[in-house]
Amino acid sequence: MIRILLADDQTLIRAGFRALLSAEPDMAVVAECGTGRDAVQLARLEHPDVALMDIRMPDGDGLEATRQIMAAKDLAGTRVIILTTFELDEYIAEAVRAGAAGFLVKDTEPEELLRAVRVVHDGDALLSPSVTRRIMAQLAMQPTAAAPSDVRLEQITEREREVLQLVGEGLNNAEIAQRLFITPLTAKTHVSRIMTKLLVRDRAQLVVLAYESGLVRPGWSS
């Protein structure tokens, strides 16, 4: 059962999401709230698997709540999907930096929302190639971007560097497998090993690292 926290300051929107999610046999809404502060408190109390987090909320916005949840050692099993009305690049980039594993606009089709919850719960990141390139192009142009010789990359093999580059381009495991002529399971194993070696929490953070290290840059395609 996927345990879900809903955080949105609009009661009607929460009600709609709750009805949609609760109708699924593998999902349960365990808590809901309308402020960032309450989102953090309820996450600590309920330890949800997935938190659907609005950005614009009173008493601490969704980005700050996400940062706090991601930083909490006792919430290592909680993953966050950011929900917002506006698909603004700065919000997406900040959401990824905050540790969010997914980003959706509120007019997303119901089927896509349900798929997103399952994808993120299974440990993947909900970042399409088009969104990934927009986000990471912005991140890569920021002064914190490191050189391509980033020492973090010295910890992984040449094959793992290839996999990380493709992750940075927004490819999923099946697409990576096709590109490198390996099985999807092998691709998944490579991604898991990379995350372990680089002490990265999830795939979204791998994408950030790929760009910040200089392994992938805007406009590049292997």
Rank of each mutant, 00 (worst) to 15 (best):
L63S: 04
T85H: 01
E64P: 00
G34F: 02
T85N: 11
L83N: 03
I81M: 09
G60K: 13
E111F: 00
A98V: 08
D89N: 10
D49Y: 07
L63K: 08
G34C: 03
D61W: 14
R44P: 01
K106T: 07
R67Q: 15
G102F: 02
V29R: 15
D49R: 14
A72T: 15
L21I: 15
M53C: 12
A51D: 05
G77W: 05
R37K: 12
M70R: 08
T78K: 04
F17I: 05
D89Y: 01
D38R: 13
P110H: 06
Q41C: 14
D38E: 15
D59T: 02
H47Y: 04
P110A: 06
F86I: 10
R18E: 13
E64W: 10
P58D: 11
C33W: 00
R56W: 03
V80Y: 14
A98Q: 12
R18N: 04
R97M: 08
T85R: 10
F103E: 02
M53I: 03
P48Q: 04
V30D: 11
E90V: 12
A95P: 04
A23W: 00
G60H: 08
A101K: 04
R37T: 15
L104A: 08
T108E: 07
Y91L: 04
D59G: 09
E90N: 09
V40S: 13
A43L: 11
E32A: 06
R79L: 13
D107W: 10
D49S: 13
K73L: 12
F17K: 01
F103D: 03
L104S: 06
E64A: 11
L75H: 08
A65L: 08
T85E: 09
A65M: 03
R44V: 05
G99S: 09
E94F: 01
L42I: 13
I69C: 12
M53S: 12
E46S: 13
I92F: 05
A72R: 07
R44H: 15
D54V: 01
L63D: 01
G99Y: 03
P58W: 06
R18D: 05
Q41H: 11
M70K: 14
F17V: 04
G77M: 09
T35V: 09
A23G: 13
G77I: 05
A65T: 12
D61Y: 12
V29A: 11
F86K: 06
A39F: 00
